[in-house]
Design a protein around this nucleic acid. Structure first.
Lengths: 141, 141
DNA sequence: GTCAGTGCAAATTCTTTGCACGTGT
DNA sequence: ACACGTGCAAAGAATTTGCACTGAC
């Protein structure tokens, strides 16, 4: 998914298929919602010598190729995730930092409201909702 | 609003009322959704010599005093806004960067859903919704 | 063989920290 | 007078840029 396409998408633009690019894409798929730093760490576990600079550049490229997107969760740190069949919004817990994925249907009503009342076209994939998750909520009490 | 309270809130904690603190709070009220940098610029227009460091420290303090909050809009830059009677979510346009305020009632349905289905307590004030606003949408066509 | 891609180091940008001086109470 | 606040300079963290070498095609 988007994954096997890498070579094809690159070729169609006259770009090259390289190890760092495959590794970074793989890590984005594996980690889900990871920061550039976390992705770099994950890549480094499987192949030494890939520079953090390259990770930044590759993420930018993959985003341009529509293979990944990013959203700003938690403390402004951008987190990247695969852009596939399953668009999703993010539910971020302020207590434990956990990120849950939220299926689009739950936002359809709101999206529709915004479209009709303001002409605003909501980008569901970038939505980040902050709050306190169930388990942290009960601990607090 | 929270504004005249500054002196009182500070005093009740044994903290001091100073020019930079008044100026920063004023700018947050005036600018709505401004970054530390923008606030610093605004403050500097009215009084020279206030250091950006002080702006950061003051914002942190005002947040602790519950007079302002921040949310992460657009490119990870934190934007501060007054914390008053009117809680609100944010609607951020990817085209023009404009930030609209969204009254809480529009999110009540969603908040209720999340609470019942997942026990997730949504923090409406921190919600940032990205997308394309009406005027940018029509320009695109 | 070419030129895109990469590593490395340095430059930027944003934010935080340490410290001595100034000032509100 | 006391200790909180501030400015200034320097330290950190995150990200970007310049450049020469390497390697995919």
């Amino acid at each position: 998914m988007g994954f096997d396409d890498l070579a094809a998408v690159l070729r169609s633009r006259g770009l090259r298929l390289t190890a760092p690019r495959q590794l970074v894409l793989e890590s984005v798929y594996r980690l889900r919602h990871a920061t550039p730093d976390q992705i770099h760490a994950d890549v480094s576990e499987r192949a030494a010598g890939v520079n953090i600079t390259t990770v930044y550049r590759t993420l930018e490229l993959l985003e341009e190729l529509q293979l990944v997107t990013h959203a700003h969760l938690s403390h402004g740190a951008p987190t990247y995730h695969p852009l596939g069949e399953h668009q999703h919004a993010h539910l971020v817990c302020r207590g434990c930092g956990d990120v849950q994925e939220l299926p689009p249907p739950m936002l359809e009503g709101l999206a529709e409201d915004l479209r009709t009342t303001r002409g605003f076209r909501l980008d569901i994939g970038h939505v980040a909702l902050f709050g306190v998750c169930g388990s942290c909520g009960s601990k607090e009490e």
